[in-house]
Computed example of a mutant assay.
Amino acid sequence: MDMSQNQQSEKMIEDQSELTLGQPLSDFLMQLEDYHPTIPDAVTGHILRTSGFEPKDPRLLRLISIAAQKFISDIANDALQHCKMRTSNSSNSTSKSTKGAKDRRYCLTMEDLTPALAEFGITIRKPQYYV
Score class of each variant (00 low, 15 high):
T87H: 09
I13M: 13
G45N: 00
Q8A: 09
F120Y: 11
A42R: 05
Q8I: 13
R62V: 10
I122S: 15
D57E: 02
P40I: 00
S9D: 10
M85P: 00
D112F: 13
A67W: 01
I47M: 06
L19G: 08
L108E: 10
H46K: 14
D15M: 11
A68K: 02
H46M: 08
L19R: 07
T38L: 00
D112H: 15
S97K: 10
S26I: 04
E33Y: 00
I124K: 10
S9N: 09
R86Q: 05
F71P: 09
Y130N: 08
S17Y: 08
Y35L: 09
T94V: 11
R104S: 14
R105V: 04
D41M: 12
Y35M: 00
V43R: 02
K56D: 12
R49G: 03
F120M: 07
K102Q: 03
R59D: 11
N89V: 10
T114I: 15
I124M: 01
T20S: 02
M3H: 01
M85D: 01
I66R: 09
S88Y: 06
Q81S: 12
A67L: 05
N6M: 15
L48M: 11
T20C: 06
A116F: 01
M12I: 03
K11Q: 15
M30W: 03
L63M: 03
E119Q: 06
D112V: 12
